[in-house]
């Protein structure tokens, strides 16, 4: 009876051990494969850029978001790009009052949180870097790419 039981325990622990080893090998292999092999289907779909790339600034523009690099940019990224794209900010031009009204509208209707002490920093950043310019009633045609048409 006791022998039989010991035998059962041994065989159970044996199969448990081999199962564990199998899991270890599988996940170890998976980890190794994911980290060391550059299969095209992995590199083609990055989920997020790494932190070194994320902070990269070129010609005064934060590459990952397109924001102008200036005091208040980090707070703007943190508070303004959780729901919508940075592009929704950078394609717009508003006065300080306009940006403030937009923030208030988002707080009233779009679930934007209280920005606390960051509000001042963000408003100053936006009003300085994304201020309107006078475009008149109709602008010149710009950025024309000339090409020969036969």
């Amino acid at each position: 009876m006791g022998k039989e039981f010991q035998k059962q325990v041994r065989s159970l622990s044996k199969s448990l051990l081999s199962f564990l080893i199998l899991i270890l090998v599988l996940f170890g292999g998976l980890y190794y494969w994911a980290n060391h092999k550059s299969k095209p289907e992995i590199t083609e779909i990055p989920l997020e850029v790494s932190s070194e790339d994320y902070d990269k600034v070129e010609n005064g523009i934060h590459v990952a978001t397109g924001f102008i690099d200036d005091r208040g940019m980090q707070e703007t990224i943190q508070n303004c790009t959780a729901c919508h794209s940075a592009k929704l900010v950078t394609q717009n031009r508003m006065s300080r009052e306009g940006w403030k009204a937009t923030i208030e509208w988002m707080q009233e209707t779009q679930n934007l949180w209280d920005l606390g002490a960051n509000e001042e920093l963000i408003l100053t950043y936006l009003a300085k870097n994304y201020a309107p310019t006078d475009k008149g009633r109709r602008q010149n045609l710009e950025d024309i790419e000339w090409y020969e048409l036969n």
Partner: peptide, 12 residues
């Protein structure tokens, strides 16, 4: 960990 999640995906 972040680096790992960068490289691994559902499709992978």
């Amino acid at each position: 960990r972040r680096g790992f999640t960068n490289k691994i995906s559902l499709a992978a």
